[in-house]
Amino acid sequence: MIDLYNIAKLFLGCKLGEDCTMAWHNKLGEYGEEKVNRYLLDMGYTVLERNWRVGHRELDFVCLDGEVLVVVEVKTRADDNVSLFDLLDYRKKRNLQAAGAAYLTKKNIHREIRFDLVVVTGASMCLEYIKEAIDLF
Rank of each mutant, 00 (worst) to 15 (best):
L16A: 11
L16E: 14
L16T: 09
G17Y: 11
E18S: 13
E18D: 15
D19R: 11
D19S: 12
D19G: 08
C20Q: 03
C20R: 02
C20S: 07
C20V: 10
T21F: 05
T21H: 10
M22A: 13
M22D: 12
A23G: 09
W24A: 11
H25E: 14
N26D: 15
K27E: 14
K27I: 03
L28T: 05
G29C: 10
E30V: 15
Y31A: 10
G32N: 01
E33I: 06
E33G: 08
E33R: 06
E34V: 01
E34C: 00
E34M: 10
K35Q: 14
V36E: 03
V36L: 07
N37D: 10
N37H: 13
N37I: 06
N37Y: 11
R38L: 13
R38S: 05
R38F: 11
R38D: 15
Y39T: 03
Y39D: 00
L40H: 08
L41K: 10
D42H: 09
Y45S: 02
T46E: 12
T46R: 09
V47E: 03
L48I: 12
L48W: 04
L48G: 01
E49C: 07
R50G: 06
R50L: 03
R50H: 09
R50T: 15
N51H: 12
W52Y: 12
W52S: 02
R53M: 11
R53G: 01
R53A: 12
R53N: 13
R53S: 14
V54P: 00
G55H: 07
G55V: 04
G55F: 03
G55R: 07
H56N: 12
H56L: 09
H56G: 13
E58W: 07
E58I: 09
E58Y: 06
L59R: 04
L59F: 00
L59E: 01
D60V: 10
D60M: 06
F61N: 05
F61K: 02
F61P: 02
V62Y: 02
V62K: 03
V62P: 00
V62E: 00
D65W: 12
G66A: 04
G66E: 07
G66W: 08
G66I: 09
V68W: 02
V68E: 13
L69M: 14
V70N: 02
V70K: 10
V70Y: 03
V70G: 04
V71E: 01
V72M: 04
